[in-house]
Computed example of a mutant assay.
Amino acid sequence: MVQTQLKMLIQLATTDNELAEKEVKMIHQIGKANGLTDEEVDELMKNPRPLGPLDTLSEDQRFEYLYSLVQLMKIDGKVYKSEIVFCEEMSEKLGYKKAAVSELSAKIYSDPSITSDRESLKAKLRKLSNR
């Protein structure tokens, strides 16, 4: 499942045709935290593959995927319309309304070391779930 998450993040990171160093670093951190080597992550970035099915994800996985997407969108300090649209599309594919992106975006900081209260955000997103 981590490869699906990384594929999503890689797609988001490349929507603005500019792969920022902070974006690459975050993608590598998530890969490493889930047991992938830097080489495996680099291979995913060089050869992006289509996403697999998302309907088998647990509620926690769906939340984590969307949370990491919004965090990556904001990490370089620039948010492009194409990134917002991509996140909203992924939000719907993950079973949330588009409004979930703005809800998370208001509470997630561009600096990943500043963490948000994930449990309260999860509770808010449950109300924005299509499932």
Rank of each mutant, 00 (worst) to 15 (best):
I27C: 07
P112Q: 09
Q11W: 10
N34D: 03
E23N: 03
Q3S: 08
V79K: 01
L69K: 07
N17E: 11
C87R: 09
D38G: 08
L69A: 08
E83T: 09
N130S: 07
I30T: 10
T4Q: 11
Q5F: 09
I114K: 05
I27F: 08
D76A: 12
L44M: 10
V2S: 08
V24N: 02
R118Q: 12
D42R: 14
Y65F: 13
V101P: 01
P112V: 03
S102T: 09
L94F: 06
L72R: 11
K81C: 06
Y109M: 12
D55I: 13
I30P: 13
G35Q: 01
Q11P: 01
K78R: 12
K22I: 13
R49P: 10
K7Q: 08
L9V: 01
R131T: 11
Q61M: 14
R62D: 01
E83W: 04
L125M: 05
P48M: 07
L69T: 06
A123S: 12
E23L: 01
E83V: 06
V2R: 10
S110H: 04
A13M: 07
R49A: 15
E18Y: 13
G77D: 03
K97G: 03
K25Q: 07
K32N: 13
T4V: 15
K124V: 02
K78P: 03
P112K: 07
D55C: 07
I30H: 11
E18F: 12
A33S: 14
L9T: 03
M26T: 06
S68I: 02
L6P: 00
R49H: 09
M8W: 13
E21L: 14
K22A: 07
A99N: 12
K25A: 14
V2H: 15
L57W: 00
S82N: 14
K32E: 10
L57N: 00
R131Y: 11
E88S: 02
I75V: 14
V70Q: 08
L121I: 04
T15K: 10
K97Q: 06
K107W: 05
S68R: 11
R49M: 14
L94C: 05
L51F: 00
K7T: 14
S68W: 12
E39N: 14
K122A: 01
E64N: 15
S91P: 04
D117C: 05
C87D: 10
F86W: 01
E89L: 11
L128K: 06
Y80G: 05
A33Y: 02
S129C: 00
I27W: 03
I114A: 02
A123L: 13
Q71I: 09
I114T: 05
S91F: 06
L9G: 04
N17F: 04
L94E: 00
L6C: 00
E23C: 01
T37S: 15
G95D: 02
D60T: 15
S120F: 05
D55W: 12
K74F: 02
T115M: 07
E59L: 12
L72P: 05
M8D: 02
R49D: 13
K81N: 11
M8S: 04
A33D: 05
M1P: 01
P53F: 10
G31P: 00
E43T: 14
L44T: 02
S116C: 13
I75T: 09
K93A: 09
D111V: 13
